[in-house]
Design a protein around this nucleic acid. Structure first.
Lengths: 350, 350
DNA sequence: ATTTGGCAGTCGAGTCTACCGAGTGCCAAG
DNA sequence: CTTGGCACTCGGTAGACTCGACTGCCAAAT
């Protein structure tokens, strides 16, 4: 509205004319670097901005009116708003990681061995060390894995454990308390019955269980019910966090640190947060864009992890809004690709 | 050495005469309360100390010489040293928790349901909320649990998963990559062979495996080897931490917060820390008593968790050296008892 | 019509000073 | 041995002042 001049505007810069964009860019870049308010002088000496500080100043008042910048107080420089960061991120040329990072990453993945948990734990740690931000990895859900085997094991008086093994290699274990004693034969019969009932189904597709009243039938029914009762652990265990200690350094108020740590503790919330962001088609959520109050001073960079062409998880980096977006984006991107491949190998073809 | 008067000293107060003890006590108590250096005046008005501030002062220089107190600077009050806290803790009358806490605790445990992981997660959270310190719970180790069942499940081309179920209900799962295709019959034969080889042993007691070279024998050997290869996850999974966000509030320097969080991330270290402290027969480790550098400004209160008369785990509270020891001790104590009982029920008789 | 240099004005941050008061150590009297 | 009294120390706070990094505005230049 402030800019109604009928001038040819280059399409590449979107809503802002080229000069404003350059100025905004310079402000964001410098603020990310120095954490200080940025003044018109340092902007005007910036390459890419070839106007005097006075001109920069007048452009900055306009950028402030439009909500891209704010002044902490009169007679201070400007700092970007969430909207300012958003513009910066949206008009970012895909940054390329330095070669050294590329190769340490390749090296890391080539030396990575072990079960999925180890792979993810290690990756999240590496990601944290590499980016210096707190890293979050969401592992593939087991929701679409089908049952390959079920076994009931007698553990002692009226107590047994039922274990289902899923097609992705995961084991789901539940303990059962029985209202009666039971013989080994009955246990093994229940095992085979349950297995044949559930085989090939996911744990989400509920199958009909014949409701007879023999001990075996009761055991079968109880066992299946317990497998269906999804414990919170099931979703929580998908979260791997690397470097929560970094929160103390990257955020500058105690308040923020407490909030972020508090949120990271609630692992289900973390899963939802990342999935929400991806759902919105974003790769960065800045400030309060994601709607999670405690993270209003934070930014989250997310990259989906795809296995066999399907989005099954996510890789995220969490930092203050003035985080190094180009680098963080590139890192998350790269790691998520590599991780997707690796998980594909681990899970195998279905 | 400073105190060589041949006076009858009451045995109850140990190395310090009664008056010094009372003064030290007052200083510690007030410092815990206010986080400020404590001066002679406020001590002399304290009940239990019926001498003038001048006398208190002269006693305080003596306490300082003996290493129980320090002055942050001349003309400031005194604060306790680690040694001062140690004395305070060692001569503490067993505090009793207020009735309200007692009953919320009972209420909590009576409503607690589910598998071990849930029980421990919930307990650690409750403990944190109740004490306002970061809580740590170490779950019973599976080291002494014996194998009750082993099953190999074919997952697809040259890939299978082996699951062992232990007497405590835990399942140990490993994925295997095979150098050859294998038939369902061979898989089930391997299953029974492995089961009969391992049954009744712990995963620590290695059994001899016949080294023939048939596909089944290879599978058996590989599977057993993979079960023996203990993943780090096995020990790490014993740690449950509640309220790491509280670290940001309870410690006052960023440095300390970073250190503590950094240590909490390394779960194996946490296990060792608590077990070390218990091994030393302590229930509180103050400052650098435990030898873990990053925690030199912290104190850890620990209570063993006993199941069937055996120490199998621990309950801990982590705070600054000026934490509320009486309350923390009482809380940890109580929770560990209740938890021990509950875990006994969960694991059942062997 | 824009851009620019110049200029007055604002305000945070740092320095210096003075002062207050909590707390000490010491000592002489009780 | 204890106590009140006294001189002294030193951190913290408040006020005055300066410095300098900014801004906004404006008139001259392009």
């Amino acid at each position: 509205m402030a800019d109604s001049t009928p001038k040819i505007q280059p399409a590449t810069t979107g809503e802002l004319d080229e000069r404003k964009a350059a100025i905004l860019n310079a402000v964001v870049a410098e603020h990310i670097d120095t954490a200080q308010p940025v003044g018109s002088n340092s902007v005007s000496t910036n390459e890419g901005v070839n106007v005097s500080s006075a001109t920069v100043r007048s452009e900055m008042v306009s950028l402030e009116r439009e909500g891209f910048l704010v002044q902490p107080h009169t007679s201070a420089g400007r700092i970007p708003t969430d909207k300012g960061y958003r513009y910066f991120v949206d008009h970012l040329g895909r940054g390329v990681l330095p070669h050294t990072q590329h190769s340490t990453l390749a090296n890391f993945f080539s030396h990575l061995r072990g079960e999925m948990e180890e792979v993810l734990t290690q990756t999240s740690q590496m990601l944290n060390e590499m980016s210096n931000y707190t890293s979050v990895i969401i592992a593939p859900s087991h929701a679409s894995a089908t049952v390959r085997s079920v076994q009931v094991v007698d553990l002692g008086p009226r107590r047994c454990v039922v274990v289902a093994i899923l097609s992705d290699g995961e084991a789901v274990r539940r303990t059962l308390e029985l209202p009666f004693e039971i013989t080994p034969e009955q246990v093994s019969e229940a095992s085979t019955q349950i297995a044949s009932l559930l085989f090939g189904n996911t744990l989400e597709q509920r199958v009909e269980v014949p409701s007879r009243d023999t001990p075996v039938a009761t055991l079968v029914r109880d066992a299946i019910a317990s497998l269906y009762r999804s414990t919170p652990t099931f979703e929580e265990d998908r979260v791997y966090i690397g470097g929560s200690a970094k929160v103390a350094d990257t955020f500058d108020t105690v308040e923020a640190v407490r909030n972020v740590l508090g949120l990271l503790e609630k692992e289900i919330v973390v899963v939802n947060l990342l999935e929400d962001i991806l759902q919105q088609g974003l790769s960065v959520a800045i400030g309060s864009e994601h709607g999670y109050e405690p993270l209003s001073t934070a930014a989250v960079v997310v990259a989906p992890v795809t296995v066999d062409g399907e989005v099954t998880g996510a890789v995220g980096l969490l930092g203050p809004t003035r985080m190094n977006y180009p680098e963080a984006l590139a890192t998350a991107q790269l790691v998520s690709e590599q991780l997707g491949q690796r998980l594909g190998d681990l899970i195998g073809e279905r």
